[in-house]
Design a binder for these strands. Sequence first.
DNA 1: CTGTTAGCGCCTTCAA
DNA 2: TTGAAGGCGCTAACAG
Lengths: 325, 325
Amino acid sequence: MANIKQIASDLGVSVATVSNALTGKGRVSAQMVERVKARASELGYRPSLAGRALRSGQSGILGLVMPDLTNPLFPRIAQHLSTVADDRQMGILIADSRGNPKEQTQAINRLLDRGVDGVVIVPQKGTAPGPQSVPTVIINTASDPDNSVCADHAGGGRLIGELITSLRHHRVVILGDDPVSEVQRDRVAGMRAGLASATDVQELWGKEGIEALAPAIAAGATAITTTSDLLALRVQSHLTRCGISVPEDVSLTGFDDLPFATAMHPMLTTVAQDVGQIADLAIDRLMRAIQGQPDLPAPATVPMRLVTRYSTSTLRRPTNLETIK
Amino acid sequence: MANIKQIASDLGVSVATVSNALTGKGRVSAQMVERVKARASELGYRPSLAGRALRSGQSGILGLVMPDLTNPLFPRIAQHLSTVADDRQMGILIADSRGNPKEQTQAINRLLDRGVDGVVIVPQKGTAPGPQSVPTVIINTASDPDNSVCADHAGGGRLIGELITSLRHHRVVILGDDPVSEVQRDRVAGMRAGLASATDVQELWGKEGIEALAPAIAAGATAITTTSDLLALRVQSHLTRCGISVPEDVSLTGFDDLPFATAMHPMLTTVAQDVGQIADLAIDRLMRAIQGQPDLPAPATVPMRLVTRYSTSTLRRPTNLETIK
DNA sequence: CTGTTAGCGCCTTCAA
DNA sequence: TTGAAGGCGCTAACAG
C-alpha cells in the first residue's frame, strides 16, 4: 500500500509537504498541492488510519452498545447511526450486551479497549451504565437522568391516549410487556395522561396480561393499547383465537411502527420514532463532546408521530355489551 | 492512559521485556512476568490497539457489509458475528449499502479505507461484489459461485415442499417476493424439488402474486408456500380479508423464522437458518484467510431446520371444493 | 513556502 | 534472560 513517504520520494519533496498538501493545512503552494494530489491518486494512496490514530490519539471510531442486537429497533438505529457517522468520516463498531447488565459493562469495555473515540449506549432496561472514560451518549427515555437523546415515549403514549379518547372509548386496557423497562413505563404513563380523566383504565403486564384480555373485554373494555408492535401482534392473534375481532370489537394499538405493522390485518395503528433525527442528535452531541466543545446541548427529546391505520375505530357498540363471553 | 514505557520505567526494566512478558512471547523469567502483569493491572494498562495496528499492519477489525441494515436477518447475523468475533478478539465495523449496488461498493471501500483485516459481505440481491483487496467471505446462497458460507436455501425449500406433500396437498402456490433474488429463486427451486412430482404447482411473485391468491384457492389450491415470513404475514392478512382461514382452508408457510412468527395466529410453520453456525464458519474461514492459511475450506452450506407450527395442516377438504368465493 | 526532526505505542530484530 | 535500537505511517513543531 502506497504511503506518504512513497509519494514524497516520487516527487522529490519531503513527507511533511505531502502531509500538508493532502490535509489542506495550507503552507503549501497551490501547484504543489496539485502535484501531490495527482500522484496520490495515481498511486491509489489511502492514508493509514492506524498511523493517524497513533499520532492523533483518536481512532475515528464510535462504539454502539445495544442491549440486545436482536432488539427490533437495532437495525434502524444502526442504519441511521452509520449513515450519519459516515458523513463525519467516522466508523461504527458494534457491541452486543446480550441482555444482561454485566455483559453490558464488558461490551463497553471491549469498545474502550479498541480505542473508540466515543460511545452510543442504548441501555438494558432497568440499568444505568455509569459515566465512561470517553464521551458518551445515552439513548433511553426522558425520565432517565443520564439520558442524552431519546424519542418522546411519554408523548407517544399521550398521542395514543388522545386518539383512543377521541374515538370515544371509555374503558381501555393498557398492556405492557415488562414493567422493569423505563421506556415502557413512560409509554404507559403517557397513555394515561392522554386518556380523558373519566376513562376507566386497567393496566396489565406480560403474558398474564394477555390472558386477562378476553375477560376484560367481556367486562366492557373496548380498546387495548400496547407498548410494542410485537405485543400488539400477539394480542391480535390471541383475540382472533377468542373470536374477538379488531377493530370491530376492540381497538388495538402498537408502538414503534416495525416493518410488519403494515403486513398485519388490519394494519396496525401505532406510533413511530424518528430514528433518523435521534441518530443525528446523538452523533452531533457525541462529536461535540469528542471535540471538547463545552456547551453540550441539553438532553433532547424527539417527538413521536402517530400513525393511524386500521386497527382502531370509533366506538360503535354499547360499552357494556355482553355478547362476547 | 498507561503505556508500556510507563510500566517499564516503574519496574526499572526495558520496554522490550514488558512487551515480551505481556504477550507471552517467552524469553522472560516467570517471576518477571508476574511483576510486569501485576504492575500492568495496577495501572489499568490496556495495550494500544493503534500502536499495535501500526506495527503489525493489522487492525483487528472486520467489516460487515449488509445489503440493507433493515434486512430482518441483519440483527441475528450481526449478533452472532459479533459474538464469534469477540472470541477472537476482533471488532466488527458495520457498513450499510442502502439497497443499491453502487453504495455497496462504496460501503466496502469505506471499510477498506479503515483498514479492516477482512470483510463479510451479504450481497445485494442480484449483485456479485468482485474480489477484494482483503480476505472476504460472502454469505449468499449456494448457487452463487462466489459464495463462501450460506444456509441451504434450496434444502430449506425442499423441507417445506416435503412437508406439504406429506400433508397430502396436491395443488400448491409458491409465492416469492422478488425473482431478482438468487436466494429466493433457490428457495423456490427447493420447494419444487420437495413437492411430489404429480403436484400442481403455480408460481407467483410480488404484490400481484398476493392478489392472485384468492382466485388460485378458489380454483383448488390448498397450500401456499412463501419465501419469507413477512410475506407469509402479508398473505395471512390478505386471506383474512378474503374470509379464507389458515390452516383450515389453506396451509401457509414462511421462511427464516423471524421473531414475529410465533406471535402470529396460527403460529407460522417456517424454516430456520442456523445463523450461529453460519457466523461461526464465516469468521473461521475469514480468519484463516487473514492468517494466510492456504487451505481454505470449501464453500459450506448449513442445513436449515423445519419448524412445524400451526399454519399447516393435513388436507381435509376435497381438492376442488368450491365453497369459498 | 518547504525541509528536518521527533515521537505517538508497540513489537521485533540483534546484541549483551 | 534482558536491553538497546529501529521503524510501522503520520503530523506538529521548529528551522531554513
